[in-house]
Design a protein around this nucleic acid. Structure first.
Length: 484
DNA sequence: ATGTTC
């Protein structure tokens, strides 16, 4: 048996790229890391593996707690963590969803080629930066009342459709059609709604961005064709979440759950894993509030995309209908899904925190456009390495509750990043060496997001592809990037 | 991630 010794934790190699922490102590199931040895080296001396072990203590967790190849430490539960927890006798944990509820990514395709935008990068990056609100605090494409926010919370992208800010086709090209019907605006606090009312259609800060990219590589031509992707094509990637509203929902419910379910908390190895027992009033209330924040985030990305369409049709000779949403994926959510556990179909709260749903062809949840080819999975890398489009792999249902990675994964904290890099230097280097045009509200944010703070996204994707959970379709490289 | 510290 090959083992990997990470100090306090020893992992056993099950097969290539699959490492297991055996069930021990209060763990209810084993834990698994899907990674190469190189990727394991990068999480061997922080809290990632301890947090993964801790997540296997959650009541009702099934099969194994998982960490995707891009995993790193987070609040209580690893970023890159996946846990399928029984919806009947298990629990739901806000820390295993994340503070930024429905942080996610969407890709817009265009009929433009790289030749069409070369020489116009400066204009494009400036126009996008003006048109799309970014940075901390308020300022959104749509600023309304608390009642408007409530409509968005309950109806998601359907609200955008009714208000002329989305098309039927947009809804058909989004996970869950851009709308979770279980959402309940009355489960979201006034404080959260007030934070959200000036932020609908805004990027925020941190790792969130809008990036114009060119397709550099196509790995599966037949699938790329179905996705509407070809070499040299210009696409736009939008990465943002539920802003202050989702953050407030997470904060509110963590506190309520800690106070109400102290008995369960006492059994857990980390307070940050606070969970509400399945069937309890708070579990249902958190789920309804989380679904509402999910709807808010989808509307947020939709309004950012609407502004992007404004700019592209203005700057280039393209029609609005030429700018199509490829797909929108959530990577910080929990969802009730039916999965096979020990030969039996069980309803689970599948927690994906920094992990992307990656359903293969044939799953009934997929929209008609992708039913035969598999779900598009969009994985942002970094400003210096580019991003990937995958399709959900056949093995994902057996291995990962239908999930794969969500990004490159951070190598260092934001604090450390600011010590290692200077924003203006990072921006100038990208411009001079890689012809990438970056415009940000804050130099510190550019330093925090320097390419060097991320793991090798190629390695992450190689592992996902080799395991058959998310298969490589195409690769993109940035042309210009705006961020908070 | 985040009115960048409950």
């Amino acid at each position: 048996m090959t083992t990997y010794d990470a100090g306090e934790v020893t992992l056993e190699k099950i097969r290539e790229y699959v490492w297991e922490i055996p069930q021990q102590g209060g763990m209810r199931v084993p834990a698994r890391v899907l990674a190469s040895e190189k990727l394991l080296d990068e999480i061997s001396d922080d809290k990632t593996l301890e947090q993964l072990k801790n997540s296997a203590h959650l009541p009702g967790v099934r099969k194994h707690a998982l960490c995707m190849p891009d995993g790193h430490q987070g609040y209580g539960f690893p970023v890159g963590g996946v846990a399928g927890i029984d919806a009947e006798d298990g629990c739901i944990s806000p820390g295993a969803v994340g503070y930024d509820i429905n942080c996610g990514v969407r890709m817009l395709t265009t009929p433009l080629e790289y030749d069409d935008v070369q020489g116009h990068e400066e204009e494009l990056v400036n126009r996008l930066f003006e048109a799309v609100p970014s940075g901390l605090g308020g300022g959104g494409v749509y600023e309304g009342t608390v009642e408007d926010v409530e409509a968005i919370l309950e109806r998601g992208m359907d609200w955008a459709l009714e208000n002329g800010l989305a098309t039927e086709s947009d809804l058909e090209h989004c996970e869950d059609e851009g709308y979770r019907p279980e959402a309940d605006a009355s489960a979201v606090s006034e404080k959260a709604k007030n934070r959200g009312k000036t932020q609908v259609g805004s990027l925020g800060s941190g790792n969130h961005f809008l990036e114009v990219q060119r397709v550099t590589d196509v790995y599966r031509e037949d699938v790329a064709r179905e996705f509407g992707l070809e070499p040299d094509q210009i696409v736009v990637l939008i990465h943002c979440g539920s802003r202050g509203l989702g953050h407030q929902v997470c904060t509110d419910y963590l506190r309520k759950i800690e106070q109400t379910h102290g008995d369960l908390l006492a059994e857990l190895p980390d307070k940050e894993l606070a969970a509400a027992p399945a069937g309890s009033e708070l579990a249902d209330e958190y789920y309804r509030a989380m679904c509402a924040a999910i709807n808010f985030a989808w509307t947020n990305r939709q309004l950012v995309m609407d502004r992007t369409r404004d700019v592209l049709t203005d700057v280039f000779d393209v029609a609005r209908t030429d700018l199509e949403l490829l797909y929108d994926v959530a990577h910080n959510i929990a969802k009730k899904e039916v999965h096979t556990v020990d030969g039996e179909d069980r309803e689970l709260y599948v927690h994906r925190k920094g992990a992307t749903r990656a359903f293969p062809a044939g799953r009934p949840e997929l929209p008609p456009a992708y039913a035969d080819v598999g779900q598009p999975v969009i994985i942002p890398g970094s400003m210096g390495a580019g991003s990937y489009v995958l399709r959900g792999g056949e093995r994902s249902m057996d291995e990962t509750f239908g999930s794969t990675a969500h990004g490159a994964g951070r190598l260092m904290s934001r604090t450390q990043a600011k010590q290692e890099f200077w924003g203006e230097d990072v921006r100038d280097d990208l411009r001079e060496r890689q012809q990438v045009y970056v415009k940000a509200q804050s130099g510190a944010t550019v330093a925090e997001e320097a390419p060097g703070v991320y793991k090798d996204v190629d390695e992450v994707i190689r592992v996902s592809d080799a395991l058959g959970i998310g298969e490589r379709v195409a690769r993109t490289f940035p042309v210009c990037n705006i961020k908070g």
